[in-house]
Simulated scan of single mutants.
Amino acid sequence: MSYHSKRILGSIVLGCCLAVAYVVYVFRLNPQLSTDLSRWARVVLVFIGIGIIGAIISHIIGVILYTIKVSVTDSELSEKDVDRVVESSLFEDEMDKLIGLRASRVGYYLSGFGAIVGIAILAFGMVPFVAVHIMLAGFFLGNLVEGIMCIYLYEKGVQHG
């Protein structure tokens, strides 16, 4: 598995852990307070902040672990060569950009569909609490499928056209 696939897999695991933590938090709170959307907005913003900080920390740890792996695996490489190998693995070329674009298209479709369903639920008079959480679920599923699609395209390969 390539470095890019492992990085994306780590992001997927982090996102799933964050989603599970959010669901546990939501069910722990009293869902009867669903009319207070400002409270839910603050909760969502806190979880978004946690996700951003977690992504930064996991990326830093991933680069450190990859550097250690390269230096241990190829012990005859000098420090300069290890730096060059790690930098070349972190570099994003045209294939990486193409994979990202194809995967993000699928993720955007799912996220947009979740947003439309959430708005439709509001239009039919459902509780805003439900609509907000359907939109969040759409964003989560879009991100999850985008990551899975990236890993699939990295491992299978992608062709132009």
Rank of each mutant, 00 (worst) to 15 (best):
M1P: 00
M1V: 02
Y3T: 02
S5M: 01
S5P: 00
K6L: 05
R7N: 13
L9K: 14
G10T: 04
G10Q: 01
I12F: 04
I12Y: 03
L14D: 02
C16H: 07
C16E: 06
C17W: 07
L18C: 03
V20C: 01
A21K: 09
A21I: 05
A21R: 02
Y22L: 10
V23P: 00
V24C: 14
V24Q: 08
Y25C: 10
V26M: 12
F27K: 04
F27I: 13
F27A: 09
N30S: 10
L33R: 13
T35P: 00
D36C: 10
R39H: 12
A41P: 01
V43Q: 11
V44R: 11
L45N: 11
L45S: 15
I48Y: 02
G49A: 01
G49L: 07
I50C: 15
I50Q: 01
G51I: 00
I52L: 13
I53Y: 12
G54F: 07
I57L: 11
S58W: 02
S58G: 06
G62P: 08
V63S: 08
L65I: 12
K69S: 09
K69L: 06
V70R: 00
V70A: 01
S71A: 12
S71C: 07
S71T: 06
T73G: 06
E76D: 14
E79D: 15
E79Y: 01
K80E: 12
V82K: 05
V82Q: 07
D83G: 11
R84N: 10
S89G: 08
S89I: 12
L90P: 10
F91Y: 12
F91R: 09
F91D: 09
E92H: 09
D93V: 07
M95T: 15
D96F: 11
D96W: 08
K97W: 08
L98R: 12
R102I: 13
R105E: 11
F113Q: 14
G114Y: 00
I119L: 12
A120P: 00
L122R: 08
L122N: 08
A123M: 15
G125D: 05
G125I: 09
V127D: 13
P128C: 05
F129Q: 04
F129Y: 14
F129A: 04
V130A: 15
A131Q: 00
V132D: 11
H133T: 00
H133R: 04
I134D: 05
M135Q: 07
M135S: 07
L136K: 05
A137I: 11
F139W: 15
F140E: 01
F140G: 05
G142Y: 05
G142F: 00
N143C: 14
V145E: 03
E146M: 11
I148A: 09
M149R: 02
C150S: 13
I151E: 03
Y152V: 10
Y152K: 00
Y154L: 07
E155A: 02
G161F: 08
